Each structure stands twice: as C-alpha cells, then as structure tokens.
Amino acid sequence: MNENSVLEKIEQRKLILNKVKCGLIERLNLNRKPNQIDDDTPLFSTGLRLDSVDATEILVFINDVFDIQVSEGDDPSYMRNINNMVSFILMKKSFK
C-alpha cells in the first residue's frame, strides 16, 4: 500500500467519523458538538446513554445515509462506539 492510498483511507475515515457524529447529534437530538464526542465513547450505558429507541434510529441512519442494510448476522459490536460504527460502515462499503 503506497503513502497516497494510506492518506486517502485516513481522510475517508475522518469524513465518515464526522458524518456519523453530526448525524447522531442531529437525529438523536444530542446536546453536543462533534468535537465533544470522543471516537471511543460508548454509545450506551456510561457513554452517550443511548437507549433501544436510539439504537433503532441508528439503524435507520446507517441505511439512509450510507445505504447499508444491517442484517441479523452482523456482529452487533459496531454499536459499541463511534469508531466501531465507522469501521463497520467502511467494511460494508468495501463489499459494494
């Protein structure tokens, strides 16, 4: 892998990180700015304190924004934090 492709992947990840943070803030009415959400903050429990209704909204968000249909067979760890969600999105998009 050459340096340009690594830089492109880094930039792509940054763009998706920002898109995910902004989308979650907007859709879930989070009273935060994107830079106030750490990439590894848990989405549920002690982190952003999201609930099952929010989880459903996240599924709709992923489908609407990234055209990814989450299936029952997908590893649910993508819902742990923003980083996991971005990795999940990048992995799913690479198969399309």
Results as ranks from 00 to 15, higher is better:
1 M>G: 15
4 N>A: 13
5 S>N: 10
6 V>P: 04
7 L>P: 05
8 E>P: 04
8 E>G: 07
9 K>R: 00
11 E>P: 05
12 Q>P: 00
13 R>H: 08
13 R>W: 00
14 K>R: 14
15 L>A: 15
17 L>H: 11
19 K>T: 15
19 K>M: 11
20 V>S: 11
20 V>I: 15
20 V>Q: 06
21 K>A: 09
21 K>L: 07
22 C>T: 10
23 G>L: 07
23 G>A: 08
25 I>S: 04
27 R>I: 15
29 N>L: 12
29 N>A: 13
32 R>L: 14
33 K>A: 04
33 K>N: 08
34 P>T: 00
38 D>I: 03
38 D>Y: 04
38 D>V: 02
39 D>T: 12
41 T>G: 08
44 F>I: 06
44 F>G: 00
45 S>H: 05
46 T>A: 14
48 L>T: 05
48 L>P: 12
48 L>E: 09
51 D>F: 01
51 D>I: 05
54 D>V: 01
54 D>I: 01
57 E>W: 07
59 L>N: 04
61 F>P: 05
62 I>S: 02
63 N>M: 13
64 D>R: 10
64 D>S: 11
64 D>M: 03
65 V>I: 15
67 D>V: 04
67 D>N: 11
68 I>D: 01
69 Q>C: 02
70 V>K: 14
70 V>R: 12
73 G>C: 01
74 D>H: 05
75 D>Q: 05
76 P>E: 01
77 S>C: 04
77 S>T: 05
78 Y>W: 00
78 Y>N: 03
80 R>G: 09
81 N>A: 00
82 I>H: 07
83 N>K: 13
86 V>F: 00
87 S>A: 08
88 F>W: 03
88 F>S: 06
88 F>Q: 02
90 L>Q: 03
92 K>H: 11
93 K>W: 03
94 S>M: 07
95 F>C: 04
96 K>Q: 13
96 K>A: 10
